[in-house]
Design a protein around this nucleic acid. Structure first.
Lengths: 224, 224
DNA sequence: GTATGTGAAACCGTTCACAGCA
DNA sequence: TGCTGTGAACGGTTTCACATAC
């Protein structure tokens, strides 16, 4: 395992490979080439080989990759080979949905605590967890061994939630609020910002249309 | 406006700038320099100037950017200056949360329809929309002028949902399912894949720990 | 003096092309 | 022969540095 600089996108793609390998494994496929896998994921074969090369040599020349074996290795690399304990901050619409989200359980995450500011929500039971007040965060993070905090609060409160999680001792934060969080370097932050993605969509559609209009209408546009 | 190739990340950053400018505007700040804005967004000032340069010249040398003016321009570029009509497919936990999500309204999106496969859910009213059967999609997309489809179904059904949306005539798809969708080139797809982001977090934490362990334990590792 | 706009340089990630090995 | 692993070439994005304008 070379400890060279690994591009962040490579890590993201590794998850993608894992997904495709799971599907192949379910179908009973035992061996897959980088070309086949690349085709499934919609990327370049060399890319896959490069990505994997950061972590070792998992293939057999002239043959390809053994599906089960490669899946096992990728899982180990990403830390998917064990359960992770999550704590949720913000039990609103989105927060509730996340607590109830079935995917999580089957992919090695478990919400073991949920926190909210509103007294009304304290004590509610959603799925398997009971909503606790913010003051309980320090204690529960330690007690339950929470490693990752999930933020699903209003944007105005996101930074405060992050600060509290950091103070309580989490190692990483998954942030659903549309805010750029400031955290110490030893706490990793990943953003799930669907408003951003939606804006990209809006731009794409908008610019496609104006391009079409420009190419369709040959007559000179007077209003530059 | 130069029609050069615009990096996709630049578009994403424009949204970020818009957000910060909104905050500055609310605070009553009238002028901002690229250095200040960059500091807020946590990026390089030259980056901002380059990003903006793709679309025109919005600043004043020696002064900076007028907040309101720049915000207006960015909004126009991204298509944030008008309402967009969304249609949801999949009214499960996540889908419901999205329908009820307050942010949407205030940011120029409106869900005008929701679809689900399960007969049980048809007719339910969530927020302002009534859940319709999948068969109604073709009709409702046209009738209600839906431009963007939002997919929040189980991964196994995501491709089917996408196909239906494309057939019905949407211009773009926001995909919450952990699946790589195959769509025709004229339909834009943006993925909101939080399982992917969570995996990146898991990797970061895992690799940080193993690095620490390696550096802490000076004695020679025998098992190389 | 100050901050933008922009060519040039540095950097990084992707793709190519082929050596190496089953 | 066939496919992996990888140095080298390529292409694109980020950063620098400075001319330009207020």
């Amino acid at each position: 395992m070379k400890s060279a600089k690994i591009p962040s996108v490579s890590i993201t793609r590794l998850s993608l490979y894992a997904r495709s390998l799971e599907l192949l494994d379910e179908k009973g496929v035992e061996v897959v080439s980088s070309v086949r896998l690349a085709d499934i994921c919609g990327i370049n074969p060399a890319q896959i080989r490069k990505d994997l090369a950061y972590f070792g040599q998992f293939g057999v020349r002239g043959v390809g990759y053994y599906v089960k074996e490669l899946l096992f290795e990728i899982r180990k690399i990403l830390g998917l080979d064990r359960e992770w304990r999550l704590g949720l901050v913000g039990v609103g619409n989105l927060g509730c949905a996340l607590l109830r989200h079935a995917q999580f359980e089957s992919h090695g995450y478990t919400f073991v605590a949920a926190f909210d500011k509103k007294p009304k929500r304290i004590g509610m039971k959603i799925g398997d967890v009971e909503v606790a007040p913010l003051q309980a965060m320090n204690r529960l993070v330690k007690e339950k061994g929470i490693e990752i905090g999930v933020i699903a609060v209003m944007p105005a409160w996101a930074q405060k939630a992050a600060d509290m999680l950091v103070r309580a001792g989490v190692c990483g934060i998954l942030n659903f609020a549309p805010t750029q969080l400031r955290c110490p370097a030893n706490v990793f932050v990943e953003n799930v910002d669907f408003s951003l993605r939606l804006n990209v969509l809006r731009y794409r559609i908008t610019s496609q249309r104006s391009r079409r209009q420009r190419t369709r209408s040959k007559p000179p546009q007077r209003l530059a």
